[in-house]
Amino acid sequence: MADAPGAGGLFLRAHLYLVYVFLYVPIGVLIVLSFNEAGLPTAWTGASLKWYGALAANETIQRAALNTAIVAISSTIIATTLGTLLALGVEMRQKPNAALDALLFAPMIIPDIVLAIALLAFFSLIKFSLGLHSIVMSHVVFNIAFVFAVVRTRLRHFDFSVIEASVDLGAGAFTTFRRVTLPAIFPGVLAGALLALTLSVDEFIIAFFVAGAGPSSQTLPMQIYSMIRFGVTPEINALATIVILFSFTALFLSQRLNREVLTS
């Protein structure tokens, strides 16, 4: 259903290309600058990996990267498990439940700042210690919702009678899950996990509120925030480049696994 390129079609196409320019030029500029010897955008003094070297030598950033990895991986594993089970439970029930849908949709739209203060208030009321573990627990909240949504779209195309077929052929509930259900939905589960991983790696506000005091539970986005807020150092471009490329890779893989991840 392609249009013959009339004047209107040409205008539309030009507009679309401009939108891509608008979306990618700022990111592109960051990436290019990360290789600038001089570090700042004032002058190009030649290509260099100097700032990546500086980044590798910076212990604070290494610590933050490690923290981020711990938070992202733990919260992804927990959220993927719980979100997948939820999606299976909801789809198998086959009875629409508006309250349940709203509850599972809520974490995606509640403003980060509100969820952040709510969790902080809750943790401090019950005198729960703050640190990486509280960040993990908080990240699981929104990650469950995203994993649930991704796996659920996968299940829409899932023929539930294969579960009955497996039982009919003599398998028990556990064997059926391990040998039939999980392999069939696995691309969706993995896609959801990759999405959860990037969201957790990138999340700033909630982590910032529930991290507690002290540098021991600083994550990368918190580091990036303070670098932006309190004096831009050239290393930030290198760091931003690495983080962005990580996200793009994970998202690309996620989309490859399950066509509907980012587009639903």
Binding site: V162, E164, A165, S166, L169, A184, F186
Partner: peptide
């Protein structure tokens, strides 16, 4: 007893 499903319910993987 075994059932042959209308959708066949084959294990696609």
């Amino acid at each position: 007893l075994n059932l042959m499903f209308q959708s066949y319910a084959l294990f696609s993987h």
